[in-house]
């Protein structure tokens, strides 16, 4: 234990990125999940400009064309929707909106929730009480219903959807951060920093936040999946994203009326959601172990072939 704190062992330790990469190789599920998510991310960036025209061009002769027709171009392999637009192209194009709403909501709620949590855990009892009551108000009501009401009153747009989903997820980060801060601030190194004369802000952001960050990263990964499901549910209900914009959830909803004769309309976008959320869940599981100094050896041992 004492050896690890000396300078020599720290310089010998691999850089952060390479160490994480090795640990990723040790977990096959997490590796597949990471590769899949990178592909999805690339599609989200290039999708609309690459296949945008193809995904909106109607072709009434090809209405509800069946999937697995290898004779036609690859965009038709998943079949076509009720207006004869190729489903595969539409799924690729919808990736951007789907990810953007979720990413925006997660980023917003994580930042606001963490800052409020840091403040609640580190300031006077009264401020703490006010912040926690606010979180209770949000938590005491089903998140989907809050979203439904707010979207109804404010009208649904991509930005509003992001905001609403962010509001409902703030308490998750707030509570986690506060609980951790309450525990960490009693530790010796925080006491030491205070004795050395560090300001409250410096202690919070330079000493406490780095310790909380791994937990929050894991949480945000998991929450990304949750928010994606929530967005797709809202779009499915018809109060989320409105056409002509598309997300995977909206595509499922659009295919619903053709369920009995064209199952593929709803099936493929659903599969896209499942694969993405499942990848996020698997990656979050891996992150929890990889970022935890106590459990990290499980992955590091597996990665070594000769040891």
């Amino acid at each position: 234990m004492t050896l690890q704190t000396t300078d020599t062992t720290i310089t010998e330790e691999l850089p952060f990125a390479r160490r994480m990469f090795r640990m990723l190789l040790a977990d096959k599920f997490a590796l597949c999940a990471a590769i899949f998510l990178i592909v999805i991310l690339i599609l989200a960036i290039i999708g609309p400009s690459w296949l945008g025209d193809l995904a909106t061009k109607q072709n009434l002769r090809g209405r509800n064309a069946a999937p697995f027709d290898w004779q036609r171009g690859w965009v038709w392999w998943m079949g076509a929707d009720a207006l004869g637009r190729p489903l595969l192209a539409r799924i690729v194009v919808a990736t951007q909106n789907t990810l953007m709403v979720a990413a925006g909501a997660v980023a917003l709620s994580a930042v606001i929730g963490t800052v409020l949590g840091l403040i609640a855990g580190f300031s006077s009892a009264r401020v703490n009480q006010v912040i926690m009551r606010l979180a209770d108000v949000i938590m005491s009501f089903p998140s989907l219903l809050i979203a439904v009401i707010v979207l109804y009153i404010l009208g649904s747009s991509i930005l509003n959807l992001m905001l609403v989903l962010a509001i409902t997820r703030i308490p998750v980060y707030l509570r986690t951060t506060r609980a951790e801060v309450l525990e960490i601030r009693e530790r010796m190194f925080v006491q030491a920093a205070r004795v050395m004369g560090a300001s409250g802000k410096r202690i919070l952001f330079r000493h406490i936040l780095p310790v909380v960050l791994p937990t929050l990263t894991t949480l945000a990964t998991l929450d990304f999946a949750y928010v994606m499901l929530a967005e797709s549910a809202l779009s499915f209900l018809g109060i989320g994203i409105q056409p002509p914009e598309i997300t995977w959830g909206l595509m499922i909803s659009q295919g619903r009326q053709y369920l009995t004769n064209a199952w593929w309309l709803s099936f493929w976008p659903g599969l896209a959601i499942i694969l993405t959320t499942m990848s996020l869940n698997l990656l979050s599981n891996w992150l929890r172990i990889a970022l935890d100094p106590v459990q990290r050896w499980r992955l590091e041992m597996k990665g070594r072939t000769n040891g």
């Binding site: 009995t260 659903g270 959320t277 869940n281």
Partner: peptide, 15 residues
């Protein structure tokens, strides 16, 4: 439960 949309399960179950 954490990855599959419940409305999708419902739709597939109906089919």
């Amino acid at each position: 439960g954490a990855s599959v949309p419940d409305f999708w399960i419902a739709i597939v179950a109906i089919v």
